[in-house]
């Protein structure tokens, strides 16, 4: 364990977290992640990488059959793994909240915006009616939700407005961490940019730290300070967003960035591609999960034999990578 960094004042610290499906293989493997207050972290990866599972594990909402097999999740100095459902429920919404991709599924179809917001506020404090009303209006203003929608039902709202309702609910109690799982994936581009602006502004004004889970590198590039790239249940690279995208070090990040930027070049006859497909969560290869698709591996038996650990880059300790062929403090020699 070399990672220290900002851990002293970290609002969220995940250490050695592993999640498995039943007795089956692990879908998240020995994951370390630290979030500073107010930090906006982009957690990116393709399907099956385990990024949504990390979010659900942190907030204690893993679907049945999934369980944390090892590791710790410390929020504001308090260990969350092993908490009772009752204590966990108190933490959720109060200290940590989640916004889903599909706001329509997350909202109650038979309750008005007002009653859902009120419920969220009432669940976490002893405020009287007038105080709750004030918090509610504050939350709506923060989420750029016009008051006229207060008595609307979810089906009467557009996708963008619905997502703003769930953002208002999530941030009403000013949690110290917000996890947003593909919050704009289902939205049109013009709506997406509006919702991202709302999220960005709200996170800034409340000081809430954000974990933005997405497959969209453009979204992360636009609104995250730091980025962690997941592949096969592990973080393979992390660091300040612009540095990670400008000079990616892990072969997977390099290939991903190359394919995304190539599409902006009209002079290319064909796109550079990563052969194959990302592994399914239940079939992650042993050793380095990316090895079967990696160009840099060059037949090195170490890559398939042993999984590289995420370690600080030599000369750039604020950046990390997990690759036997990248010079890190974790690699031997």
């Amino acid at each position: 364990m070399t990672a220290v960094g900002a851990s002293a004042e970290a609002v969220l610290k995940i250490t050695d977290l592993s999640v498995a499906y039943g007795e089956g293989p692990e879908v998240v493997r020995s994951l370390d992640l630290t979030l500073a207050p107010g930090e906006r972290l982009g957690l990116i990866g393709e399907s099956g990488a385990g990024k949504s599972t990390v979010g659900l594990a942190v907030i204690g909402l893993l679907r049945s059959g999934m369980r944390i097999t090892s590791g710790s999740v410390v929020l504001n100095g308090r260990e969350l793994t092993g908490l009772s459902e009752r204590d966990l429920r108190d933490t959720r919404g109060n200290d940590i909240a989640l916004v889903y991709q599909d706001a329509l599924a997350a909202l109650d179809p038979v309750k008005s915006v007002r009653s859902q917001l009120d419920e969220a506020i009432r669940a976490h404090g002893d405020l009287d009616r007038a105080q709750r009303e004030a918090v509610m209006l504050d939350a709506m203003a923060g989420a750029a939700l016009p008051v006229e929608h207060l008595d609307s039902y979810p089906h009467e709202l557009s996708g963008g407005l619905r997502q703003r309702v769930s953002i208002a609910m999530a941030l009403a109690n000013k949690p110290s961490v917000l996890i947003a799982d593909e919050p704009t994936t289902a939205l049109d581009v013009t709506t997406q940019s509006r919702v991202l602006a709302v999220l960005d502004e709200l996170v800034k004004s409340t000081g809430t730290a954000l974990i933005l889970i997405t497959h969209d590198l453009g979204v992360v590039s636009a609104c995250c300070d730091t980025t962690a790239v997941m592949y096969g249940g592990r973080i393979v690279e992390s660091g300040p967003t612009q540095e990670v995208f400008q000079s990616p070090r892990h072969p997977y990040t390099q290939a991903l960035v190359r394919s995304v930027t190539a599409i902006g070049r009209s002079d290319l006859e064909r796109l550079p591609v990563i052969e194959g497909a990302p592994p399914a969560a239940e079939a992650i290869p042993s050793g380095c999960a990316f090895a079967p698709r990696c160009e840099r591996r060059d037949g090195d038996p170490l890559c398939v034999a042993e999984s590289p650990t995420l370690a600080e880059l030599v000369g750039a300790p604020h950046r990390k990578a997990a690759c036997w062929h990248v010079e890190t403090d974790g690699s031997d020699g």
Binding site: V189, T190, Q192, S193, D216, L217, G218, V219, S221, A222, Q242, F245, Q246, S247, P248, Q254, V257, R258, V260, T261, I263, G264, R265
Partner: peptide
Amino acid sequence: RELLAAAPSALGEPVPDA
């Protein structure tokens, strides 16, 4: 113009080929 402005730009500056 509105559509183009709203689309998240790929990744800012083009990344030189590795």
